[in-house]
């Protein structure tokens, strides 16, 4: 029984990171309607910049926020150079998908050039003994990860629900031509949502760096996990993507009880494939079928 609690807690921790990655990704997907695979690399940029700023002995919160700001700015720059041009040319989604895979590799390898392929450890917090809850062990850093991701997702919810900008983003996500007709500055809203998505993703990278050593290629796995979480929950809705990501975290960790731990990635890739085949709209589409347009 204790095992289960431990695996649930582990699931919550991995799920928190996936959820933060998926939230940014899904926000970008919904306002732009294309799959931004390079988001995984953007997440890693956040983690590495945090590492650099932290080495400058900045305050940890300042370092994290600055890393996220700079990453958001860089991502927006890349957006202007690539995706915005594709939009102007009315390129199809497949071209955008290929471009995003190319961007993912590009950023990955630029990171590798700067920081090397070996693991980079960020010692933001001293290593402390774990605390015990009902026989399960959780470290203070892990509690911070869970709490920060919940706060972050809460803030995103408030932004999307109660602010003018959030409402405009949802309007663009709903129907971008109609939003333009009623006077929403569509392109600026899209840029802003790209920035916010990358900002949140970069903070996800910061969370990753607290939990484990950074490797450039980790970004590829993170975006596949975030994407899988989003597809399981329902990519058309940001909250559903977040719930799907937590679910994926639980499923992966509970699967360890029955299968060797290496099969974690097989399970998430397999789930991604099955969901894309049988229910591309995810659980959200299964439960609220009439509300999904696709």
């Amino acid at each position: 029984m204790e095992y289960y609690i431990q695996f649930m807690i582990n699931g919550l921790i991995t799920g928190s990171i996936y959820a933060v990655v998926a939230a940014g990704f899904s926000l970008i997907y919904n306002t732009h309607k294309f799959v931004h695979f390079a988001h995984g690399a953007v997440v890693m940029v956040g983690g590495y910049l945090f590492h650099t700023f932290f080495l400058l002995e900045w305050n940890i919160i300042v370092a994290a926020l600055m890393a996220a700001m700079v990453t958001g700015g860089l991502a927006l720059g890349l957006y202007q150079l690539t995706y915005a041009v594709f939009y102007k040319k009315r390129a199809g989604n497949v071209i955008l998908l290929m471009a995003s895979i190319a961007l993912l590799l590009l950023i990955n390898n630029v990171l590798q050039l700067f920081y090397g392929a070996q693991a980079t450890v960020v010692k933001a917090f001293p290593v402390t003994e774990g605390l015990e809850f009902w026989g399960a062990i959780i470290t203070p850093v892990q509690i911070i990860i869970i709490a920060v991701s919940l706060i972050l997702l809460g803030l995103l919810y408030i932004l999307m629900t109660y602010t003018q900008l959030g409402k405009m983003m949802r309007a663009v996500a709903d129907n971008d031509e109609l939003s333009l007709i009623i006077g929403i500055p569509r392109d600026n809203v899209k840029r802003f949502s790209f920035f916010i998505g990358s900002f949140i993703g970069a903070l996800g990278g910061v969370l990753v760096s607290l939990q484990e050593a950074l490797v450039p290629s980790r970004g590829t796995y993170l975006i596949i996990k975030g994407f899988t979480g989003a597809v399981i929950g329902g990519i058309e809705s940001v909250p559903a993507s977040i719930i799907g990501s937590y679910l994926l975290g639980f499923i992966e960790n509970i699967s360890i009880i029955y299968l060797p731990s290496d099969y974690k990635i097989t399970i998430s890739f397999g789930l991604l494939f099955l969901f894309l085949i049988f229910s591309p709209g995810g659980l959200y589409a299964l439960f609220f079928k009439d509300r999904v347009s696709k």
Binding site: A102, L105, L106, N108, N109, V110, Q112, L113, A117
Partner: peptide
């Protein structure tokens, strides 16, 4: 190694 990949993606 990375330069090759960067070249291809660009």
């Amino acid at each position: 190694g990375p330069s090759r990949q960067i070249l291809y993606s660009i």
